[in-house]
Design a protein around this nucleic acid. Structure first.
Lengths: 208, 208
DNA sequence: CTGTAAAAAATGAATGTTTATTCTTTTTTT
DNA sequence: AAAAAAAGAATAAACATTCATTTTTTACAG
């Protein structure tokens, strides 16, 4: 329920709402504030009032852009995940060799997470929390398809070990999250050398 | 501040308190309830009142055993982590070969997480949350020493890749957490075959 | 072993905050 | 001037924690 309810008859709401123009600047500020607060205090300490204050907005304004807190967090998750996937596969070429294709995607993923640690860390925060709906999570996974296809092709060609996608992901992609978290905590400064070593390890773990 | 404060002069408190007997049954019930609730709803939806109800205890009773919520969560984390490490290294033998030693520890870790998914999942929930103090986290890591020593020996012997502990951990141990989470979500049923494949991948990723 | 009084543990209800969300009004945009 | 966006203040529920009592356990004198 939001402010439009009082002006627009219920039957027209659905068709009219998408036409409404809203200031996307405030929305972006809210998204950014949400990411930052969740990262530094966790979901349990990112109240709407703080998010509003950090975005220089009244708490009430949040409800113009988002239905409620659950919706806010899930929308932010979906947007960041989509951006991440978009970046990872932007330079992807399905005709490249398995080795080339995998290295390209792997490095783009690493690059994204390193260039925007806030967003990368936010995504790993979301990975295990029940705050994110199952549907949002599935929504985020579906963009992974080109990589899964690549793996399947690699398995057929005898280059990649015949493992489930889950296992391949767990050993070649998931470790990046650990390194990122270590960096965020200050336990590690990821260098180019580290990244090359990590790539070697990832490739070694999934190839015959 | 707790109930003893009114009966015991401040100067005697520290020496006298450890002698006090308390019913460890209630405390254990609280620990179990905390793990269960945090696992299924996240930290943000595990209020003291619910924890108390699930442990069949009054909310006030929690404060006899724990200082506050932060303390409760951190104590639970430290206990579970200690139990996990104890289990992982129980059969460890520093004289075994690198390969044998690593496989033993790796399988014990996997075994622990699989035999008690609730606790295993709780630990991964804690891995990224700011609810856990830095000191609690360091406390949990220090038990990992035998594995780190094994790696160092393996590096000297030219068996293990000369990588930082962080990288070795990220690729050989951390993936287990992903598989566990997938199992908890119902996306995967971990079989003995999976486990063997996972072990091979772990070993491949860190060896020359 | 038993009765008893002090200590400790446990409780339900109370407290004061914090929270998400909504209401009413004002400001900005169209 | 109408519609939309934004705001601050209001609301009601949820929360962590404490308070005032009651119940249980402990220690030990007889």
């Amino acid at each position: 329920m939001n402010v439009y309810s009082f002006f627009i008859p219920l039957t027209h709401k659905l068709e009219i709402m998408p036409v409404l123009k809203k200031s996307e600047i405030k929305r972006a500020a809210l998204v950014k504030a949400t990411i930052h607060l969740v990262n530094n205090q966790g979901f349990h300490a990112a109240p709407m009032s703080k998010i509003a204050k950090m975005a220089n907005v009244s708490p009430a304004t949040i409800y113009i852009y988002f239905e409620n807190k659950q919706d806010l967090v899930n929308q932010v998750y979906k947007e960041v995940k989509a951006e991440y996937m978009q970046y990872a596969f932007e330079t992807f070429n399905a005709d490249a060799s398995i080795a080339e294709g995998f290295e390209l995607v792997w490095r783009r993923m690493a690059e994204y997470k390193l260039k925007d640690i806030e967003k990368g860390f936010f995504l790993s925060q979301c990975e295990n929390t029940p705050m994110i709906d199952t549907s949002s999570r599935q929504d985020g996974i579906k963009n992974l398809k080109p990589l899964l296809d690549l793996w399947d092709r690699g398995i057929t060609e005898g280059i990649i070990k015949p493992l489930s996608h889950q296992l391949l992901y767990a050993f070649s992609i998931y470790p990046l999250a650990f390194l990122l978290n270590a960096e965020k905590r200050g336990d590690l400064k990821i260098t180019t050398a580290h990244l090359n070593e990590a790539y070697q390890a990832a490739w070694a773990s999934i190839t015959q």
